[in-house]
Every structure is written in structure tokens, then in C-alpha cells.
Nucleic acid binder design. Structure first.
Lengths: 136, 136
DNA sequence: ATTATAGTTCGCCACATAACGAAATAACTC
DNA sequence: GAGTTATTTCGTTATGTGGCGAACTATAAT
């Protein structure tokens, strides 16, 4: 039996940093967000549409996920795109996100979110934002 | 390359149940508790000593961990012993606990707790409880 | 049976947090 | 430069949560 260094050697965290991650994972909207990003990056207005929350609320959730090191941000013109964190910085939380992904594979809410995600990606970004403005 | 069913097939959770677990993991004292139990069962008065919290507070934390399915309880006379959950019921949260264990292996707080744990296990249970009563 | 005691439950308080709308910011358009 | 717009920050409010002590429960010892 061959020993696999990749499996044995896992990224070390301080209790403080780990708690930042577990606190980030302890909210329904943030877990939904992560599972949505699992399939690829989304911009804030798309997440607003999918989560059904106010822009300021979504922004706050994203800020918490980013501070915990779970997601990264990319600005493109007026839009801000968020994606799951990768690279060395993210090694610490990857196992946690992987656990979420596998455990929730058959959850109704998550599956429903995924279906809506496909729809939202089909529609035009400008139109989506216009619709959201009208709704207020 | 051989596919391993044990790795691919993971226990499914509802979002609701998963959040119960992540909320349980989002508190410092509860994470410390899990890491202490990682090395074997402890009774409540030992945990009171190790965490430095009031009995009622420790009891509440244990209740939250138990409801989430992370730990089990065994009553022996006047004492209640808690241990990490095992068996089928616990499959859902095992990956999470394993992630904690590996990530926190080198954390100062956790290491210090482990050292104290050894001391507490050395001392007599009756004596420990007596000392706690006097402290109040 | 009475008393002592380990643990839990309950009620309370202080503080954290999720939600929103309004105001501020940053970036495009005209 | 002025106006438009996607996102963030700030202030407020309602609810959730961690902490404790007091009262309660269950078990053991006398």
C-alpha cells in the first residue's frame, strides 16, 4: 500500500481562521451561494436574483465569504464576478467546500437553485438588472 | 485507474441538517470540545474543567453538538460521558470532523487543551468535582 | 427516607448577526 | 462634466446566541 503525501499533508489553520470559515458556512444563504458558485462564477446581480435578497444583503454575505477565504472577486466594468477561491490561499477551506458539495448533491433546495441558475445564465445581464430595478 | 466507491459515495444530507452541523461547528468552545473528544470520551465535569465555563453553559454546548449528530452520550451512575458519534447516523458529519482534526493539528489552543486533557484524566473524578464545587 | 451531588433546563442579559433601505462609491454613457 | 447604474457601506431593527445563576431532575450514599 502506497502512502499518499497529498492526502496526509493537509493545510494547517489557526482555530481563529477555521472559525471564520465555519461561521461563514453556518448560514443558509451563504451555503446556497457557494453551491451556486461551484458550477462557475456569477455576478452580484445574478446572485441577487437567485437568492431573492436585497443587494446590500447579498453584498454583505459575499464579503463574509471573501474574508473567510472561500471566494474571490473579479471586477469587469460595472459588474463584479465572484467565484470559488482556488490557489494556495484556498487550500485550507477546500476540504470543507468539497464536503458541502458531496453532502448536498441531492438536496432539493440546492438542485432547485441549480436549475434557476441555468435560466439566469440564459437571460441577458442588462435585462436582468433592469428587471431588478423595476421591482423596487 | 480503479474507481473507489468508498470515496465517491458520500452520505447525503438535507440543507437543513447540514446547517445544523455547520452552526454547531461555528463556535470556539464547541470546536474545542470536539477536538478534546477526538482523543476519547470525557464526562461533563471534565469538560467543565477543560473549557473553563459554567456547567449549564457546557451542557448547552453538548446539547447542540448532540442534536447535530456530532456526539453521543453514555450515562454511568452520576456521570454522563460524551464521545464523538460513530456508526451510520454519524456518517454525514464524519468528513467535517476529520477536516477539523487535520486542519487544527498544529493549533496552539488545541494543543494546549490536549495537554490539559492528559492532566485532568490523571486526577480523580471525585476530587475534580469537589474542587469545582468549592470554586463556587 | 433523607441528603448530597452530577447534570440539565429555565430565565435572564449582553452582544452578535441577518435583513432592509438610504446614502456613498465606482464605472460606464452621453 | 452630468447622468445612469452596479455594487458597497452605513445605520437601524428584529431576531439569534453565548454566557451565567437558580431551580429542577436523577442517581448515589448514608
Amino acid at each position: 500500500m502506497k502512502t499518499s503525501a497529498a492526502h496526509l499533508q493537509s493545510t494547517q489553520l489557526t482555530l481563529r481562521n477555521l472559525l471564520q470559515i465555519t461561521k461563514a458556512l453556518s448560514d443558509e444563504q451563504r451555503v446556497r451561494t457557494l453551491m451556486l458558485l461551484e458550477e462557475g462564477e456569477l455576478c452580484v446581480c445574478q446572485l441577487i436574483e437567485l437568492l431573492g435578497l436585497a443587494p446590500s444583503t447579498v453584498s454583505k454575505h459575499l464579503s463574509i465569504l471573501r474574508t473567510a477565504g472561500l471566494i474571490d472577486c473579479r471586477k469587469d466594468g460595472r459588474w463584479a464576478y465572484y467565484r470559488l477561491a482556488d490557489g494556495n490561499e484556498a487550500e485550507g477551506c477546500k476540504p470543507a467546500v468539497e464536503w458541502l458539495r458531496q453532502s448536498l448533491a441531492e438536496d432539493r433546495v440546492i438542485q432547485n437553485d441549480r436549475a434557476k441558475r441555468a435560466e439566469v445564465l440564459d437571460s441577458d445581464l442588462e435585462e436582468l438588472c433592469q428587471r431588478q430595478r423595476k421591482a423596487c
